[in-house]
Simulated assay, not measured.
Amino acid sequence: MRTYAIGDLQGCAHEAQLLIERIHDDALEHGQPLPRILFVGDLINRGPDSLTALRRMKALSDADPDRVDALLGNHDLHLIAVAVGAQRASRSDTLGEILAAPDCEALIDWLRRRPLAMFVDAHLLVHAGVAPQWSAAQTMALAHEVETTLRGDGWIDFLRQMYGNEPDRWSDDLTGIARLRCIVNALTRVRLCTADGRMDFLHKESEVGPEGSGLLPWFDLPQRRTADVTVVFGHWSALGLVLRPNLIGLDSGCVWGGKLTAVCLDDRKLLQVDCPEYREHGGKK
């Protein structure tokens, strides 16, 4: 089965449907079975139709969980936290229809059971990035720690303590909420790091850190231990599409008037859908 990874939807339900149809049509045209489709997170928020996007992804996954799944992104976690009162909504959120929907509880329950990382055919899929100290195997194990918490009885208490920028550097000695927060921040928020692997969360809107800051994209740190696999990620619309031998960046700015992108992990075949400018660029992502 071929596998496609799709970048951040952010509530662009119409464009997601068009892209899924293109993937299916391409498979049928070449006499191939329907491929696996994996979304790298941020299914919702900022775009025009988050409720439809979330309902459709849940329906597709429920119908064929081995073929369709989605990672948790920072916006997805934000929705879960807002829905249970663990975090306040932001003025820029477009989550009202989900929160008022009669099936909100079922949607939140499905969403909180999504993975934070996947490993598929030598590809490591995450929403934002990985701490440079982690191997692919350690990334999967640490993601599982958070997944277990989100699916357990104490998940709401965890969400209340999840927010914060510290600790900003991974250590195997971390325990408790500090450990879980650091894992979540790496997998769903990181973009830039210092040379020694400390995560920066202040600079969000550019491809690089300010001049003289010494900040580098997490994937350009020379000591990154996941360099031996191909990492697939989203979250960073300022980068646009990134295709390197061991790196695939899929956030091509759908909600900002860019494109929604799918890449086949088997042969790097690229499928894209143009998107209207639903939000003016410069809003925090």
Rank of each mutant, 00 (worst) to 15 (best):
R2Q: 13
I6D: 03
I6P: 13
I6E: 09
D8C: 12
D8E: 09
A16Y: 03
I20D: 13
H24V: 14
D25K: 15
A27T: 10
E29P: 03
G31T: 03
Q32R: 15
I37S: 02
L38V: 13
L38P: 08
V40W: 02
L43N: 08
L43V: 14
P48R: 00
P48G: 04
T52G: 11
T52E: 11
K58F: 04
A59I: 00
D69W: 05
G73L: 05
N74S: 02
H78K: 11
V82Y: 02
A86L: 01
A86I: 08
A86F: 01
R88W: 02
S90Y: 11
S92M: 13
S92P: 08
E97K: 08
I98F: 04
A100F: 01
A101P: 03
E105T: 10
I108A: 07
I108L: 12
D109M: 01
D109L: 01
L111C: 03
L111A: 03
R112W: 05
R113Q: 08
A117F: 00
V120Q: 13
H123C: 08
H123A: 06
H123W: 03
L124K: 04
V126H: 00
A128H: 00
G129Y: 00
T139R: 00
M140Y: 01
A141P: 04
H144E: 12
V146E: 02
E147Y: 00
T148R: 09
L150K: 02
R151K: 05
D153A: 14
W155Y: 15
I156S: 06
Q161W: 04
E166I: 05
P167E: 07
D168A: 15
R169Q: 14
R169T: 13
S171F: 08
D172Y: 07
D173Q: 11
L174I: 07
T175D: 09
A178E: 13
A178T: 02
R179E: 02
R179H: 08
L180H: 07
R181V: 06
I183R: 03
I183D: 04
T188P: 04
R189F: 00
T194L: 06
A195I: 02
D196M: 07
M199R: 10
D200S: 15
D200A: 05
F201H: 12
E207G: 11
G212H: 12
S213D: 13
S213T: 06
F219K: 07
F219Y: 14
P222E: 01
P222G: 01
Q223G: 07
T226H: 00
A227L: 12
T230R: 10
V232C: 09
F233T: 00
L239W: 06
P245E: 10
I248V: 11
L250E: 02
D251C: 12
D251S: 08
V255N: 04
W256A: 02
G258R: 03
L260D: 06
L260Q: 09
T261R: 11
T261P: 12
T261K: 04
R268E: 04
L271C: 10
D274L: 10
P276N: 03
H281R: 15
K285H: 14
